[in-house]
Computed example of a mutant assay.
Amino acid sequence: MTSVANGIRVAIDGPSGSGKSSVSKKVAAHLGIGYLDTGAMYRALTWYCLDRGIDLDDLGVVADAVTAMPLEMGTDPSAPSISMGGTRIDADIRTTRIAEVVSKVATNLQVRPKLQQRQRELMAQIAADQGGVVAEGRDITTVVAPDADVRILMVASEAARLARRSKELHGGADDAAIAATRTQIVDRDKADSTVSSFMSAADGVVTLDTSDLTFQQSVEAVLTLVERARG
């Protein structure tokens, strides 16, 4: 494949808690290539708008902010970072304040094509500069990079996804932690599913169900697909 010669591009989509972020970072680190968290770009835009007092319901103004915001994506899979005009906002975009409203931005149909173009350009730049890229998000396999060398839809049962994200956010998976996590997982997926299909694979996209896989098994499954593409 020509694109492999210019830097392999791996696209991984999936719902929250499927393991796509942690697996993508590990795969990129193993391969010695760059990593791009496209979901963080929607969170960063949300942060930018709130920071500047932009009404998230003003669709056109929010869309204009895509090109205005001075977003910088750190692509080291061992230490990815998100900065806005030189200021790190990694922790800020992961707060409940952002999580509760990011779907307003992610479902803005004027925003999506603009951010998708930025993601497309970033993937090409990272692949060329670092020998490849693993990009993960919602519609990377179908819209942003339908011609990627490896395209994977990573899924998991709702129970598995809730347990994983609950441990990540609250340090455990008891009933209280699961309940506190449910809104962020189920409601976010429900909202995002109105503008993006990430529970069923498009033609040519490999479905990887991680419900019963360990983290390492999930990583190895992706690496096997990458080796096939390279071979």
Rank of each mutant, 00 (worst) to 15 (best):
M154D: 04
H30V: 15
A191R: 10
D13F: 01
S196Q: 10
V143P: 11
T95Y: 09
G132R: 12
R138M: 11
Y42C: 08
K104D: 07
V143A: 13
E158V: 15
A11N: 02
G172T: 11
T214E: 06
K20S: 05
T141G: 00
G171W: 05
E121A: 12
G34F: 09
D187E: 15
A124M: 02
M73I: 14
T107V: 13
I152T: 07
Y48R: 08
G85W: 11
R88M: 14
R151F: 04
V206D: 02
E158M: 14
A229W: 08
V205Y: 03
T210R: 03
S16N: 07
E136T: 07
D58F: 08
Y48P: 14
F198Q: 02
S3W: 04
E136Y: 06
G39E: 09
S200H: 08
G32H: 12
S24R: 04
M84E: 10
S197R: 10
T2I: 13
S24Q: 05
D149A: 13
L162C: 06
S166Q: 00
M199H: 12
T224N: 12
R94Q: 15
A145F: 03
A63D: 09
D189S: 10
T214P: 03
T181C: 09
S197N: 10
A173T: 00
S3V: 01
R52M: 06
E72S: 12
P80W: 08
A148D: 02
L223M: 15
T87V: 15
V186K: 00
L162S: 03
R112I: 09
S157M: 01
A176R: 12
R164H: 03
D64E: 14
S81M: 14
A160Q: 00
L36R: 04
S3Y: 03
R161W: 04
A79K: 15
D51C: 00
G14T: 01
